[in-house]
Every structure is written in C-alpha cells, then in structure tokens.
C-alpha cells in the first residue's frame, strides 16, 4: 500500500469514504429535488446539499494533505491532474454548447426554419447592451488580468502579493455576481415569459453559478496562498482555479456578444 517503497511515480490512493458519502449526497439531492418540485418540501434537498458540502470539504482536505505531504504529487501526477482539469473544462464547454444551441435555434432561421423572425420576440424589453452587461464584461476581463498578476507573483515566490491579487480577483467576482443579481432583480421579463426568458435565464444563470463556483475556488486558493501551500514550481490547485476562471470569462464573452449584444441589436436599432 502507500506506505511501501514505490518504484513508480504514480499515486496509489488509499481507500476513501468520500466517493460513497458523495453518492449519498447525490441521491439525497436527486430525490429531495423531486420532492421539492412536486410537494414543495425542501428538507431532503437541503440535507443532500449539506452532505455534498461535507463531502467536498473532506475529500479536498485529503487531496490538500496529499499534495502538501510532498511525496504523492510527483511531477507526473501533477501533469495528470492538470490534464484532468482541462478535460473537465472541455466537458463544461459542451454543457454550455447546449444552451447556446437552444439560443441560436430560436433566433437563426438558417439553423431552424421556425426560428423567430423578430428577436427579441415582441413585447420583450432587453437590457441596454452597453449598460450593466458591458460593465460586467469589463469587470470579468479585469479579473482575468488580476489573476494573471497573481500567477506572475506566484512564479516569483511572492506569497503576499499572490494572495493579494487573488483576493482582488475574488472581490471582482463577487462584484460581478452582485451586478448579475441586481440585473435579474430589475429585468423587464420574468423567468416564465417564453423562449427569450428561458434561454436568457438558463444561459446566464448557469454562467453565474459557474462564477460563484470559480470565486469559491479562488477563495480557497487565497487561503492556501497565505498558508504558503504554493511554490513557484508546484501550484496545481492555483492553475486549475485560474483555468476555470478564464473558462468562465470566455463563456461570458460569448454570452455578452450573442445574447446581450447581437441578440438585442434589432430592438435598439428600432428605438
């Protein structure tokens, strides 16, 4: 087992309870979600979510211990973790692909003969492109830059500066989420008001959810950077968080250009 002398560079992981506990969380959330949707009782869903958080905490605590031990995460194992993160992001891209498909299916007659000829559909008042949505674009682009500054500081071994610039990124992420919440609160179209609302809320909503996840991921990196977990040569967790953040950033650019800009240009051209 792991205590024996190894003759290969790979990580033989010890048996772990977390996959089973995580599965219980998934099951509780699925059944609890259905109970909530059909009977309005949220308790099992909340319990499942709590178990999920507990799983995340325990599982990733173990991963951090293994990483910090200095013996398990050899350069080859680090490479595996990095490739794994890239592949996960590739699958996330395909998840958003489905929502963009739904959007263009509703708006582009070349894709779909019964696509809407007028978009946004009549009666829908979209957000002014170069108001809050554009501000959000600038916030996210800036956060990409601050994160890159953090990465440079990390490569130079400056933990204080690394932590500081990660924190700046986290704050920008929180501001973005707050802006989105404000936008949702002031939308002229409700969640159930037809296909414009469906594509808008699901696409931007899942993006917003990913922003929150990315912000939490970076927040963990902030504490790890302060603790001195990262070295100039080994900081897989930071790289994964940074890649994830840039991915979220790029999805936003596509959302901004397609939904907020191109998708409402016909409306504002008429004004």
């Amino acid at each position: 087992m792991s205590s024996e002398v190894k003759s290969h560079p790979f990580h033989m992981v010890d048996p772990s309870p977390w996959p089973a506990v995580g599965t219980i969380a998934a099951f509780l959330m699925a059944t609890g979600g259905i109970w909530y949707m059909h009977a309005g009782q949220p308790w099992v869903l909340i319990l499942g979510f709590a178990v999920l958080m507990y799983t995340f905490f325990g599982w990733w605590r173990d991963v951090l211990r293994e990483a910090n031990s200095g013996t398990y995460h050899t350069p080859l194992v680090q490479r595996g973790l990095r490739v794994g993160m890239l592949l996960f992001i590739a699958s996330e891209v395909m998840f958003f692909f489905a929502f963009f498909w739904a959007f263009f299916n509703a708006t582009v007659p070349a894709i779909n003969r019964i696509a809407h000829e007028v978009w946004p559909p009549e009666g829908v008042i979209p957000f002014p492109t170069f108001g809050l949505p554009f501000l959000n674009t600038l916030i996210l682009l800036t956060s990409g830059a601050t994160l890159t500054v953090a990465h440079h500081a990390l490569r130079l071994g400056d933990h204080r500066k690394t932590a500081l610039w990660i924190l700046a990124t986290v704050i920008l992420g929180v501001i973005f989420t707050a802006c989105q919440a404000y936008e949702y609160g002031h939308a002229a179209f409700g969640f159930t008001d037809g296909i414009y609302s469906s594509t808008f809320y699901l696409a931007t909503g899942f993006h917003g959810f990913h922003v929150i996840v990315g912000t939490l991921f970076l927040l963990v990196c902030f504490f790890r950077a302060r603790r001195g977990d990262f070295t100039p040569n080994q900081h897989v967790g930071f790289e994964a968080a940074a890649w994830y953040w840039h991915f979220v950033d790029v999805v936003w650019l596509f959302l901004f250009v397609s939904i907020y800009w191109w998708g409402s240009s016909a409306f504002f051209a008429q004004q």
């Binding site: 489905a98 498909w101 739904a102 299916n105 509703a106 779909n112 019964i114 809407h116 559909p121 969640f191 159930t192 037809g194 296909i195 414009y196 609302s197 469906s198 594509t199 809320y201 699901l202």
Partner: peptide
C-alpha cells in the same frame, strides 16, 4: 415554467431532438 420545447411559449420541440 420555461418553454424551451413548448411552442406556445415560442419554444421548439425539435430542439430536443437535435440536442
């Protein structure tokens, strides 16, 4: 209450088949 696949809300059942 979304209407991705519901024509009465401007959606398209064929979208489901594509996806």
């Amino acid at each position: 209450g979304t209407t991705f696949f519901a024509p009465d809300g401007g959606g398209d059942p064929v979208l489901w088949q594509h996806l």
